[in-house]
Simulated scan of single mutants.
Amino acid sequence: MWLGRIFLMLAVVLGLSACGGSKFRTYDGPEVTSIQVHKSARKMYLLHNDEVLQTYDIALGRVPEGHKQFEGDGKTPEGTYWIDRRNPRSEFHLSIGISYPNEADRAYASSMGKPPGGDIFIHGHTGTKNPRTGKKNRGDWTEGCIAVKDREMEEIYAMVRNGTIIHILP
């Protein structure tokens, strides 16, 4: 009887450890030299030079068409930026920051008397509950960020380094 309990406890412990618990992965493949986001196709590509390493389905800002111009417009920026920061404690699982706004974005918003906004990230939580609203995320739902599934974000977080160029296309 006690042997059966020990076996059962051992099976539970091994089963739980096999689930992996860490959201921090390692990556030792080819360097990600750039990221391309194709907003109209809802796709993001991680590239090593001209070779596509990974492809992801994405969600965008709640107003997906057009370039982000002002804080609160719900649009995802368009243009060339770079990855400029990492947030391992993101409320959206993990996130990597995009360098929006650039000088031109700030100048345009200023000329219109509005702030350009900021805090644009690639982050997790597609298809799960939004920690801010408690509602299930469907379709385009962010305030201008690019969202992927949590497990995909773990992979992206491991693969992409600060300084990586990101091209966000209409």
Rank of each mutant, 00 (worst) to 15 (best):
L3T: 09
G4C: 06
I6Y: 11
V13E: 06
G15H: 09
L16P: 09
S17K: 08
C19T: 13
C19L: 14
G20F: 05
G21F: 14
G21Q: 11
G21Y: 14
K23N: 12
T26C: 00
D28W: 03
G29D: 08
E31F: 03
V32D: 02
V32N: 08
S34F: 00
I35M: 04
Q36R: 13
V37A: 08
H38C: 04
H38M: 08
K39F: 04
K39V: 07
S40H: 09
K43Q: 14
M44G: 06
L46R: 02
L46F: 05
H48Y: 11
D50C: 00
D50N: 09
L53W: 08
T55H: 00
I58K: 01
I58A: 04
A59I: 01
L60Y: 01
G61N: 07
G61C: 00
G61R: 05
P64G: 07
G66D: 00
G66L: 07
H67N: 13
E71M: 14
D73T: 09
D73Q: 11
D73Y: 10
P77Y: 03
Y81M: 05
W82Y: 15
I83T: 13
D84M: 05
R86L: 08
P88V: 09
F92I: 00
H93R: 08
G97R: 07
S99V: 07
Y100C: 05
Y100I: 01
P101N: 06
E103Y: 06
E103C: 01
R106Q: 15
R106A: 13
M112K: 15
K114G: 01
P116I: 07
G117V: 04
I120T: 06
G124Q: 07
G124N: 05
H125A: 06
H125M: 14
G127K: 04
T128K: 15
N130M: 14
T133D: 15
T133Q: 07
G134A: 12
G134P: 12
G134T: 12
K135Y: 15
K135A: 15
R138G: 11
R138D: 15
G139I: 10
W141N: 02
E143M: 11
G144R: 00
C145T: 01
C145F: 03
A147V: 01
V148P: 00
V148L: 03
D150Y: 05
D150A: 05
E154S: 14
I156H: 03
A158K: 06
A158N: 07
M159F: 11
M159N: 05
R161V: 02
N162Q: 11
H167T: 10
P170C: 08
